[in-house]
C-alpha cells in the first residue's frame, strides 16, 4: 500500500516535446515546469493566481500555472514562453515587447507575453469582455479592451503603457486581428 500522496510518474507535453517526470501530487504545474523540467521562463510571483507571472497556455488557452496540479495535465499541450521563440528568432510579441520597452525589471514579462498570446486568440474567436458595449457584435481591438483583458497580469514596475503598445502593434502578426480601429 503506497503512503499518502506518494509520487506519480507522469508525461507532460511541453512545447511540443514529451517529458517524463516523477512528481508529488501536490506539485503545481508551475513548479513542475521550473524545478523538474528546468523551464524557468514562467515566473512565480504570488503563487495564488493573483499576479499572472506564471501564465502559460494549456491547449491554447491561457491559465495560471500556479493554480493547477502537474498531475492534472497528462495529455494536454502546454506552451511556455520558451516555446514561443528564442534569442535570434523571437515571436512577434516578444520582438514588440523589446521594441516598446514593455517592461522594466522583466519579472512579469513572460506571463504578460503568454497572457497576451492567449488574449489575442480569445479576441480572434470573438469573445466579449467586461468593457464590450454590445454582446451581439464582435468587439474592436481597442486600448480599453486590451487593458480589461490583461487585468490578470500585474506589473509592479508599472510598465503598462509599453505593454499596451507592444500588444497592439504585435497583434496583427500573432493572428488574424484587423488593424486596430482608431
Amino acid at each position: 500500500m503506497p503512503t499518502l500522496g506518494s509520487a506519480m510518474k507522469i508525461t507532460l507535453n511541453v512545447n511540443g516535446e514529451a517529458r517524463s517526470l516523477d512528481v508529488d501530487p501536490r506539485v503545481a504545474l508551475l513548479d513542475a515546469l521550473r524545478t523538474h523540467l528546468d523551464l524557468t521562463g514562467s515566473k512565480k510571483g504570488c503563487d495564488h493566481g493573483q499576479c499572472g507571472a506564471c501564465t502559460v497556455l494549456v491547449n491554447g488557452r491561457r491559465i495560471n500555472s500556479c493554480l493547477t496540479l502537474a498531475v492534472m495535465h497528462e495529455g494536454d499541450e502546454i506552451t511556455t514562453i520558451e516555446g514561443l521563440g528564442e534569442p535570434g528568432s523571437l515571436s512577434p510579441l516578444q520582438k514588440s515587447f523589446v521594441k516598446h520597452d514593455g517592461y522594466q525589471c522583466g519579472y512579469c514579462t513572460p506571463g504578460q507575453i503568454m497572457s497576451a498570446k492567449g488574449m489575442i486568440a480569445e479576441f480572434n474567436m470573438g469573445w466579449p469582455s467586461n468593457v464590450t458595449d454590445d454582446l451581439g457584435t464582435a468587439p474592436d481591438f481597442t486600448e480599453a479592451e486590451i487593458k480589461e483583458r490583461m487585468s490578470g497580469n500585474l506589473c509592479r514596475c508599472s510598465a503598462y503603457p509599453g505593454i499596451c503598445h507592444a500588444i497592439r502593434e504585435a497583434a496583427p502578426d500573432e493572428g488574424t486581428i484587423e488593424e486596430a480601429a482608431e
Binding site: 493566481g49 499572472g52 501564465t55 488557452r61 491561457r62 491559465i63 495560471n64 493554480l67 493547477t68 497572457s115 492567449g118 488574449m119 480569445e122 483583458r149 490583461m150 487585468s151 490578470g152 497580469n153
Partner: peptide, 8 residues
C-alpha cells in the same frame, strides 16, 4: 476574476 481564471 481574470481571463486566466475564467479559462480554468
Amino acid at each position: 476574476a481574470s481571463g486566466q481564471l475564467r479559462n480554468k
